[in-house]
């Protein structure tokens, strides 16, 4: 009866702390994230990855986010991935060779495996830190700010920003809805017959369709109401959001990021 509770984790779930990273404007964080990701993708090799990892760790420390926030997949998955990575890596071979007495282990494949893993994890981890330290609501207004200059080029930024800010606003509503539907399904599951004959499989399939339709109709109904509310406010012609001046912390963070990127670039060119 009693099930072990899985530790919760959060994609873009704010952790309420006061820290240097929390104080940086969400827009700055998004810019930094984009720049660093592009840099590491262009320069990736061992030295640059080490610089990147160092950067991510520094950001993590200054974000004062508890280690418990990091989502850990079930142990068996980690073990499986590690073992398969190491086994296939050893079998694939390649330099460097390590000698244990008579036995020669060719570590090239293992090296590649870890390099690749570190490369993926670094970017994901940085993404998660941004999520833990910024409120989704703040992201919406900062994206509006970032996109605003593109209006001069003639892009329909008003519509993009209006849609984007509304969709960010509606995220909690939609999450709530999906949660409720999954609970409803859980309650109804008691009666679900086993997947024995084809007709019942079809019933279950139809039930699935019904659930999607319910989610969609509920979204549409809400959209109608929201549309009316927009009209009542005189349309969305100018979704500008509040202006935001960059603080010293933002400038420092941007400066530090540029420094890190330059270091990566140097390491890449010198190829130590």
């Amino acid at each position: 009866m009693k099930k072990k509770q899985r530790r919760e984790f959060g994609i873009f779930r704010y952790i309420d702390r006061s820290s240097f990273v929390h104080d940086i404007w969400a827009g700055t964080k998004i810019v930094i994230l984009t720049l660093v990701s592009i840099a590491v993708t262009s320069f990736v090799n061992w030295p640059t990855l080490c610089v990147m990892t160092g950067f991510v760790l520094i950001v993590f420390i200054f974000a004062k986010v508890p280690i418990r926030a990091i989502p850990v997949p079930p142990a068996w998955i980690v073990v499986l991935v590690l073992i398969s990575g190491i086994v296939t890596g050893i079998e694939a071979g390649g330099k460097p060779y390590v000698h244990f007495g008579r036995v020669v282990v060719k570590l090239g494949g293992v090296e590649t495996f870890f390099e690749f893993a570190l490369f993926s994890l670094d970017i994901i981890f940085l993404l998660m830190i941004v999520g833990w330290t910024s409120k989704l609501g703040e992201v919406s207004s900062s994206l509006a700010r970032i996109l605003k200059p593109f209006k001069k080029v003639g892009l329909p930024i008003d519509e993009v920003v209006a849609t984007l800010s509304l969709s960010i606003r509606a995220v909690p509503l939609v999450i709530d809805e999906i949660k409720t539907i999954s609970l409803v399904e859980k309650q109804r599951r008691k009666h679900r017959p086993a997947f024995e004959d084809a007709k019942r499989v079809k019933d279950v399939f139809n039930e699935g369709i019904d659930m999607i339709i319910v989610a969609i109709t509920s979204c549409l109904r809400r959209a109608t109401e929201i549309g009316e509310a927009i009209e009542a406010r005189g349309g969305y012609s100018d979704v500008v959001g509040l202006s935001k001046k960059l603080s010293r912390k933002d400038v420092f963070a941007l400066f530090f990021t540029l420094l890190v990127i330059t270091t990566m670039g140097v390491f890449y060119l010198v190829r130590i």
Binding site: T163, A170, C219, A223, I230
Partner: peptide, 11 residues
């Protein structure tokens, strides 16, 4: 307005 709302919600 309603198109924007629908685009946002269904998206």
């Amino acid at each position: 307005a309603s198109e924007v709302a629908e685009a946002a919600l269904l998206g």
